[in-house]
């Protein structure tokens, strides 16, 4: 915990210590929720470690683009897994390649850091009980935390996508995009599809955010919650590779992540994408409810 977390400059009315014994959820001050959300956003996006995380993620497409640009005339040019091999032909693919590259580990790690810290970080710093003194119910407080983490994850995906788009446009140029089906669609359509890819990637991370928030309510050690969140993502990915568990694969958190390739087929099957989002919705509902039960009943002593 950096001192900045504890000594967060109190926004008017938000983190100012209120009388400790005010029963929660009695007086819902108008605007208290909004102020709390603003303060939480400032906190999340102002943290040095979060800024570093965002910059690191944004550097991935830059690095990938530069490496591909430098090596494109060598023997290994045009090679690579997934969409990497197509980047040199069309910068638009850099967005997709970068998102695919970050999806298995870097983005879950980002979620782990952001969501694992949300409650447990405050508990460890001893600021949680002051936060609970704000005239806002615990349910709303949890919602504020969730919204802030989701915004941060969305910002991370957006940062990767935008940096990749700019890098790709500068290094390789943007042109009409050739889909996996061999059909070439105009650039505008391609941009829409790539935006769809980024949106789907962001939405398919929501389940893990809910899991991370729940884990964060269980402990006062933020590192534990962060690590556990990453472990959940990795275990899910490992289980997804075991053919013996094919029955449970469709319900796994990470199973539908690669369905994002649907956006690059000649006819996008919205049913497939909808199913992936429905599974995320289910994880959000269950772990959101668990987090709510835990957070609204827990004895907060620090």
């Amino acid at each position: 915990m950096s001192p900045a977390d504890v000594l967060d400059p109190p926004a008017p009315g938000s983190r100012a210590p209120a009388p400790v014994l005010v029963p929660q959820a009695t007086v819902a001050h108008r605007g208290a929720w909004g102020r709390l959300l603003r303060s939480e956003m400032r906190l999340v996006f102002g943290r040095r470690r979060n800024i570093a995380l965002l910059s690191g993620l944004a550097a991935v497409p830059l690095l990938l683009g530069v490496v591909l640009f430098v090596t494109q005339d060598s023997a290994l040019g045009g090679q690579g897994p997934g969409f990497v091999g197509r980047v040199t032909g069309n910068g638009l693919f850099l967005v997709i390649a970068a998102l695919f590259m970050c999806l298995p580990f870097l983005l879950p790690l980002t979620i782990g850091v952001a969501s694992g810290d949300a409650i447990a970080g405050e508990a460890q710093a001893g600021t949680l009980r002051y936060l609970l003194a704000v005239p806002v119910s615990r349910t709303r407080l949890l919602a504020v935390k969730a919204v802030a983490v989701l915004t941060f994850v969305g910002a991370a995906v957006l940062a990767i996508a935008l940096v990749a788009l700019v890098t790709g446009a500068v290094l390789f140029g943007l042109s009409d995009i050739t889909l996996l089906s061999g059909t070439t669609v105009p650039l505008a359509d391609g941009l829409l599809r790539v935006a769809g890819v980024a949106a789907y990637v962001a939405l398919s991370l929501t389940g893990l955010v809910a899991v991370g928030l729940f884990l964060s309510t269980l402990t006062e050690v933020p590192v534990g919650a962060m690590a556990a969140t990453v472990v959940v993502a990795i275990v899910s990915a490992v289980l997804d590779t075991l053919p013996q568990l094919a029955v449970i694969h469709p319900a796994l958190l990470t199973h539908h992540w690669l369905d994002v390739a649907e956006f690059l087929r000649v006819q996008v099957d919205w049913g497939v994408l909808g199913q992936g989002l429905a599974v995320q919705g289910a994880w959000v509902a269950i772990f959101g409810a668990l987090a709510w039960s835990r957070f609204t009943t827990a004895d907060v002593t620090s």
Partner: peptide, 23 residues
């Protein structure tokens, strides 16, 4: 004091755990 002001509400709070089960 920071512990939830509860004893009578404890069962009500415990019943909140039925929410995830229902979900």
């Amino acid at each position: 004091q920071t512990v939830l002001p509860t004893t009578p509400r404890r069962s009500a709070l415990r019943s909140r755990w039925t929410a995830p089960v229902a979900v």
